[in-house]
Simulated assay, not measured.
Amino acid sequence: MRIGELARRTGVTTRALRYYEEQGLLAPERSDSGQRRYAEAAVDRVRVIRELLSAGLSSKTIAELTPCVIDGRATPELLDRLAVERDRIGRHLADLARTRDRLDSVIAGAAATLHTGAPCRQDTAA
């Protein structure tokens, strides 16, 4: 498939797809006229790349982990690296959960003051 079709099917811009290629994350074949041609498997590959980017992994890290994460070939070193990334994501999730809980507490407190008419905070400006 051509780059425009891959972009439509994955919801990714053609510019992003070119960036993935520059970073070694995608490897399209080239037609005789130089146009990029992607295999059907590129759709899933782009989706995995997007998931990993959304999880906070850099394109460099994704390129390093591609043999294990995308291609299914693991070495002990790659598995260790994946565990490090998983643990980092776990810490980030825990931080987000604490932030969510704090916001829930603020929302609950603010909701209680709405019923009493008391202000949530007082302006200190005169």
Rank of each mutant, 00 (worst) to 15 (best):
R100Y: 13
A83V: 14
D80V: 14
D101T: 07
L93W: 00
R98L: 02
L65M: 01
I89E: 01
E64Q: 03
R73N: 08
A97C: 10
R73C: 05
R100G: 09
L103V: 02
I62G: 03
T66Y: 03
A63W: 00
T99P: 05
D101Y: 01
V69Q: 08
T66A: 09
D87R: 15
L65Q: 02
C68E: 04
A97L: 04
T61C: 03
A74S: 14
R100L: 10
A74M: 09
G72N: 04
T99K: 06
A97T: 06
R73S: 09
V69P: 00
E64P: 05
R88C: 09
A63G: 06
E64I: 07
E85K: 11
I70T: 04
A97P: 07
G72C: 07
T75A: 08
L79Q: 07
R86N: 12
D80H: 13
L82M: 10
E85C: 13
I70Y: 07
L82Q: 05
E64C: 00
T99N: 10
T66I: 03
A94S: 13
R100F: 12
A83D: 09
D101N: 02
L103I: 05
L65R: 03
R98P: 04
D104R: 02
R86C: 12
E85M: 13
R98D: 11
V69E: 10
L96N: 12
L103E: 00
T99Q: 12
L78K: 05
K60T: 11
P76F: 14
P76Q: 12
A83W: 06
G72E: 10
L96H: 12
R102E: 14
P67Y: 14
L78T: 11
D95C: 08
D87K: 14
L93H: 05
D87G: 15
K60F: 10
L82N: 04
C68D: 09
R102C: 11
R102P: 10
R91D: 14
P76K: 12
L96P: 09
L103P: 04
I70D: 05
A63Y: 02
E77G: 11
T61L: 00
D80K: 13
L93G: 01
E85T: 13
L96E: 14
L79D: 05
R88Q: 08
K60D: 05
L78W: 08
R86E: 09
A83I: 13
R86P: 01
I62M: 03
T99W: 13
L65C: 02
R86V: 14
E77D: 12
D101W: 01
V84Q: 02
T75E: 08
T66V: 06
I89D: 06
D71P: 01
E64L: 06
R91M: 10
A74T: 15
D101A: 06
A74L: 08
L78C: 05
G90L: 10
R81L: 15
L103M: 03
A63I: 07
I89L: 09
E85W: 06
P76G: 09
G90R: 11
D101Q: 03
P67D: 15
L79M: 10
P67T: 15
E64N: 02
L78Y: 10
L79T: 13
R81V: 15
D80P: 03
A97I: 05
I70N: 00
K60H: 07
D104C: 06
T66E: 08
D95W: 03
A94F: 00
R81F: 15
K60I: 11
V84R: 03
T61A: 02
H92L: 09
